[in-house]
Design a protein around this nucleic acid. Structure first.
Lengths: 191, 191, 191, 191
DNA sequence: AATGAATGAGTATTCATTCAT
DNA sequence: TATGAATGAATACTCATTCAT
């Protein structure tokens, strides 16, 4: 991505996170990016059109977290725990912006883009499941890609519930992680 | 709820659904409610303060769908299918508004209210699970309330994915329902 | 004056003093008067129409201050000092509302009323001057009524300057009183 | 002053004069200034913040009237008459706006600015008095600056009374000028 | 006379976007 | 490419006044 385009995207990410999409001003975004007001419009046609670029950046972050922390050598039980840690970690940091993007893309009628952006992430989890199936750790009957989608949905929802509703002490968060681990493991395991 | 307050809430629900919260105008809301502009402010202090009232109405609708369609006499496998139908049905109708409320409550800093409003719905599913546990249809080790929360999250996420990403033909939706049924049933069943 | 009318007038005086005429609300005025919103309009046709009633009350206060403190037996030099004290005292308390009324009456196009309301006060000072002229303490050539008008204007302006501009320590106020006493005494005395 | 800022100030002066500060609309002000609505806010943060700029313009006008009409060569008796003419002239033109500013600055809590803005005008009159004192035309005991303040107050009040109360025929105005001339001359002259 | 719920006209201010430089 | 001054459309909220009770 062009250097300035990236600067704008990252600045917008911060401003959207702090103010929400509607209350964020282009003026603040360009201030954060260190460019002039008009320059913004050389790279994006409108304020809302930055949103898909932000979504890309966020999935990049999730995927790079995955590559940093995931270990292909360990058994699936452990891999699932690592995955849960990853999802909880990025949810904690990006929960608000994630919800904003979800709505923002909706109002922007670019939901199809949303799916395309998520695609590589789903694929990553799919291959994890396929490996586990080959090792007999995960039930063979499950369709890897579709199950990956459900699994990610489950983990993200659990993380959101954790950071959204609960009083957010370390204890309840650990409890939630264990709960969702048990739930998912049961759902996936060979009988 | 006061008659006028309810009229305002329902009108706001419709307008928010069509335009989104930020682009909705109080002027349209009152037109829909058949009252004068100033009257709105006798019942709500601001445009955003209608949001919790809408959330209540929506949970009411979900709960009444549940009471209409759920059958306490049938086995849990069938109850789960009914539950999936219910969640997919209200998600189809209220997905956008649901997401809007999520963000709206957030910007309104009333997220704790959100949990309180959801509470009776979680409790409803909990009792379903407890009955199934007594009948030996669901694994006894599971904590009913916490599992209910995860289960609802899973079903809602699946429904959202279905209506959000997919091309929304009847076939893929049926496939998604089957997938999530299998996934959840595995997660819950006694071994 | 009718009891309720007086209650409304006094409440309006307080609210106007605190908020200014434009920012004062009828709602606050009636709250202060302990009556209902609609009752206000049984006594006054509009918010601005209370202003002349307030002006009357204020001149009443000035005149009653005069009757309380003025001593007809003492020489004019001393009477002038007493008059200065009176004007400074009511200016300190009612400066803001006085200015508001001045503008308020203007926008209300009732300036002629303003003069009529002031009339008894001017007359009071006139008779003071006439007495002093008979006693040879004040120059005989001066037209008592017209001089009274100038004198009141001078004293009120001096008091306003004192409370408006200066840092309002007791010392500068005493200095101002002495200045205006000398100025006025020179202007009035027989040569 | 910036060209646009001056245009806005002068337009606001006119609109305030016609409608009063509260009833004046920014929309009218910008129409009069020949600029767009938003441009107003590039130069002033709010409608009320134009007031000090107007006050400056008005004192400028008073001072330039003074420089045009005052003659340093003539005796003080004549200078005082010229001064009275000046004060009556600008009071006639700017009485309403002057009162509005007085209240406007008050509600704006910028009364200290008001004094600072008036300062050069007071200084001008002071030097007039000092010259007259050197020529033995004005009593040496008087403190020039403090007396100047009282004198201006007296003249402005007299002019206001003249244009405010009286029926404003040329005769009563001339009478008022003569009255205030006698009053002031007595107050200032050497005995 | 008294009430107070309902009305709806009216306006300052913001900010995405443009365009002359 | 880059700038940033200028634009002007768009809207939540207030509050004096009314009127059915």
């Amino acid at each position: 991505m062009d250097d300035k385009k990236r600067k704008i995207t990252l600045s917008a990410l911060n401003v959207f996170k702090e103010k929400g999409i509607e209350k964020a001003t282009v003026s603040e975004i360009v201030k954060g990016a260190g460019i002039a007001q008009g320059t913004f419009y050389l790279y994006f046609p409108s304020k809302l059109s930055v949103i898909p670029a932000i979504a890309e950046v966020m999935i990049e972050k999730a995927i790079s977290l995955f590559h940093e922390q995931m270990d292909n050598q360990v058994p699936f039980t452990e891999q699932l725990q690592i995955l849960i840690e990853i999802v909880f970690e990025y949810t904690e940091n990006y929960r608000e912006i994630y919800a904003l993007l979800y709505v923002g893309l909706g109002s922007n009628q670019q939901l199809n883009e949303w799916e395309a952006i998520y695609e590589p992430y789903y694929e990553l989890i799919s291959s994890l499941l396929r490996n586990a199936q080959q090792n007999g750790e995960v039930c063979d009957n499950l369709h890897a890609k579709r199950t990956a989608t459900l699994l990610i949905g489950l983990l993200e929802t659990a993380a959101e519930q954790s950071y959204l509703y609960d009083e957010q002490n370390e204890e309840t968060i650990q409890l939630k992680k264990r709960d969702v681990y048990e739930f998912a493991m049961n759902a996936l395991k060979t009988n």
